[in-house]
């Protein structure tokens, strides 16, 4: 066993593999292309000016934050239905990545809102429900990381994960209703939904690819990390005891 492993190349003691290394290089190339097109080659928007460049990273991040949430709900459902530990780890890994992405989306959205609307925050349906989404994700992570029995936290977090997307939909619907009853959502009229074309559309397209590659790369690494954490959880106690014993022994 040892000889083969000793001869193995670098990357043995990591969550990386040849596949993730290729993916990582592609992601970095994608990000470089995104910076080139988003910051240099694409023209400023007619109405928004330079601020439109924020959207090339903001919109793809939002999309992949939502994809992460769906993966969490699907993974939780598969875990509850099929007892699949693999899906449980997918749910956990994507929930954590979705949390990072959602936080990024909120902050970049606020930075975009300041020059566009003159304020960092408006009580718009999209903003408000994204903020609630972040809180719901934090709740899921809090339960998944509880210092409790492995079965307890996976099962309980899976139920929260299962309810994640339904909750987001209900929250979003109610917030939208709440805002539109009082005022028309005019603020976003020339915002994210505005028509874009040419080099700007291409930059956004590059953004989707680059952020998507980063998402996939992170998901694989985070999944493997979660898998290792579980292994350690199982073996943890025995190993710790053995280690303590060997420490005490005179060598």
């Amino acid at each position: 066993m040892t000889t083969q492993l000793d001869a193995a190349p670098e990357g043995l003691d990591s969550t990386g593999s040849r596949g993730t290394r290729v993916l990582g290089v592609l992601a970095i190339v994608g990000l470089a292309a995104l910076a080139l097109f988003g910051l240099v080659l694409s023209p400023p928007d007619a109405s928004q000016g330079e601020v439109v460049r924020i959207l090339y990273v903001h919109v793809p991040s939002a999309t992949f934050a939502y994809i992460g949430c769906f993966l969490t709900t699907i993974g939780s459902a598969m875990f509850l239905w099929r007892r699949s530990a693999w899906w449980e780890l997918v749910a956990y890994a994507s929930a954590e990545i979705a949390t990072v992405f959602t936080a990024i989306v909120l902050v970049t959205g606020m930075i975009w809102g300041r020059p566009t609307w003159g304020v960092f925050w408006v009580w718009d349906a999209r903003l408000t429900s994204t903020a609630m989404l972040l809180l719901l994700l934090l709740g899921y992570l809090a339960v998944r990381r509880l210092p409790a029995d492995h079965d307890v936290r996976t099962k309980r977090s899976a139920i929260i994960g299962l309810l994640l997307v339904p909750n987001v939909i209900i929250v979003r619907q109610s917030v939208q209703w709440w805002r539109t009853l009082h005022q028309k959502p005019t603020l976003l009229a020339n915002g994210v939904g505005a028509k874009i074309e040419g080099l700007m559309l291409f930059s956004l397209f590059i953004g989707f690819i680059a952020i998507g590659l980063v998402f996939a790369w992170l998901l694989i690494h985070r999944f493997r990390l979660a898998w290792l954490e579980d292994q350690l959880d199982d073996a943890g106690l025995d190993a710790a005891i053995a280690e303590r014993r060997s420490e005490g022994e005179p060598s």
């Binding site: 988003g38 903001h58 020059p115 992170l218």
Partner: peptide, 30 residues
Amino acid sequence: YVVAAWVIVFGGLGTYSVRTILRGRSISKQ
């Protein structure tokens, strides 16, 4: 604003990636 947003995206993702990798390295050893 543009620079701030891009720095936050790249910085945030970079920090999180590095943390994930480093944690993966330390935990794989165990």
